[in-house]
Design a binder for these strands. Sequence first.
DNA 1: TAAAGTAGTTTATATTATAAACCAAATATC
DNA 2: GATATTTGGTTTATAATATAAACTACTTTA
Lengths: 97, 97
Amino acid sequence: MKFKELDPLLHNQLRLAIMSILLNVKEAEFTFIKEKTGATAGNLSVQVSKLKKARYIEVKKSFKNNYPLTTCNITKTGIEAFEGYVNALQGYINKKV
Amino acid sequence: MKFKELDPLLHNQLRLAIMSILLNVKEAEFTFIKEKTGATAGNLSVQVSKLKKARYIEVKKSFKNNYPLTTCNITKTGIEAFEGYVNALQGYINKKV
DNA sequence: TAAAGTAGTTTATATTATAAACCAAATATC
DNA sequence: GATATTTGGTTTATAATATAAACTACTTTA
C-alpha cells in the first residue's frame, strides 16, 4: 500500500489551482479564476466542465451588468476529494526522513 | 506569483513514485522499482528513460546471474528538481489556513 | 530442443491538455 | 445606425502524454 492512487482529475496543474482557489472562497467568478491561474478561457472552460461533471464543483450561470457571469463553488465531494489527494501525495513527497 | 509551475516531468504519478523511491536509497534495481510501484515494465521503461534524459536519474546497465540488470540512482539535479516540485506544490495544497 | 521465464525496449493506441477558432451579446466608434 | 471592438465564454482540432501490447534477446528448465 505504498503509493496510493493520485486522483487523475486533481492531478493536473490547472484543475488543482482551480480547486485550491475554491477551497478558500465561498464562490469565485470565471474571470477571477482565469486571472489568478493565468489560464486561457478555453482551457479553463474545459477544466471547469470536468470538475463540474465529477461534482467536485458547482457552476452557476447568471448575468452581471448585462454580461454573462459564471460562478463556481466547491462541493463537499470536492473538498473530500482534495483532502484525499493531498493525503495520497504525502506518501510520495514526505519520505525524506 | 500565486501558482508556481509544476515541473511536468515530475507531475506524473509513476515518475513521482520512481523519484520518491530513489530519494531514499543509494540505488534501486529496475525490477525493485517495478514491484514497489506496480507499474508495467513497458511503462516503467519509458518513464525511466524520460527521467534519465532530463538527468534527474542515472541508469546503469550490467548483469546479475547472467540476466540483464538495470540500476537507477537519483542525481543532484533530480533531488533539486524534486525539492522544487514539492515547494511549488505547497502553494496549491497548503492554502487551507 | 522446445517451452517457459527473466528483463527489459519499442511502438501503436487511447487519453488528455491546450490553443485556436468560434459564438453571442453588449458597448463603443465613426 | 452600421461596424468594429470588447466581454465572457464554448467547441473543436491538434499536439502532447500515458499506457499497454507486442516485441527483442537471452536464460533456464524439462
